[in-house]
Design a protein around this nucleic acid. Structure first.
Lengths: 148, 148
DNA sequence: TACATACATTTGTATATACAAATATTGTTT
DNA sequence: AAACAATATTTGTATATACAAATGTATGTA
């Protein structure tokens, strides 16, 4: 990736703002590839993320605030995100019997099946995204990202 | 930044997906700080970016497609973004006399003045964002980001 | 000149997201 | 028990963004 080429400038950009631009460009690129990989399943990255969280629960239901805590991008509107998954038949939602303020969300068999297919598609996306990376590069990158 | 703590998981996440989550978390954090820095001026990051591009033109007008080329996040709707800057008095827009399909956009004195203030605010944001970074860390990070 | 094509921007519309206020339920205090 | 505060979710609304179609202008060709 060549920053200056993408934003079509010949000027030298100072290191600090350049890094922010660089991060943004990489973020956009990753998002594009990931959305492409999820497109056949008609779910957003956020929805995919929620499905993975639910699978991680191993049958144990999750409520909305738990989902929100565990989401990578915390958003205000988990209700409507779950609505979408519900309308696709990927999750079930019931009122929690012991505390009726809460809802209990579980992933369905159909959701699990779809998720397994998404995993395969995401594997391919990873291959594209990381084609120039060695394992040590990724470790070094994670080390540096921790400094933020 | 501790990935596992933020998304409240105790499980070990494989390196590749972990890096993507890491990137997303850092991106969100940077955005939050940047938007905070720009809040007093009531401009979005995209709008700020366009103002900087216009300043870089050194008086030479830019048309919409040029702006779009140079923007960090290319978007479909540069027209409406420029509308916003126009209503704030930060830019002027005129029809290009030699080719009436094009528009010519220039930054106003008021826009330049506001931009100088934003620069100061962004300087502070940089200090927050990069407080744990040495120069060599940033160089190494840029080197690794190029692999995407 | 008339026609088709290409170019630059604008507009319409659907969807996404952010933020605040509203609703419903539970827990606490007097 | 009544009143109040705390919790969990839902809803309303404003704003943002993506994508496609529409508009207006310029260029090339028969």
């Amino acid at each position: 990736m060549n920053v200056e080429e993408i934003i079509k400038t010949s000027k030298k950009i100072p290191l600090e703002p350049r890094t922010l631009i660089h991060m943004e460009l990489v973020h956009n690129k990753i998002n594009e590839i990931m959305y492409g990989a999820l497109k056949p399943f008609e779910v957003s990255l956020q929805q995919f993320n929620v499905l993975r969280i639910l699978r991680g629960q191993q049958g144990k239901p999750a409520n909305l605030s738990t989902l929100n805590d565990r989401m990578v991008t915390k958003m205000s509107n988990t209700t409507r995100l779950v609505d979408k998954l519900l309308s696709k038949g990927f999750v079930n939602r019931t009122v929690c019997p012991s505390n009726r303020r809460k809802v209990e969300i579980v992933i369905t068999d159909s959701g699990l099946k779809a998720l397994r297919q998404m995993d395969e598609s995401l594997e391919d996306a990873h291959k594209v995204i990381y084609q120039n990376f060695k394992k040590e590069d990724l470790e070094q990158l994670n080390y540096l990202l921790d400094k933020f």
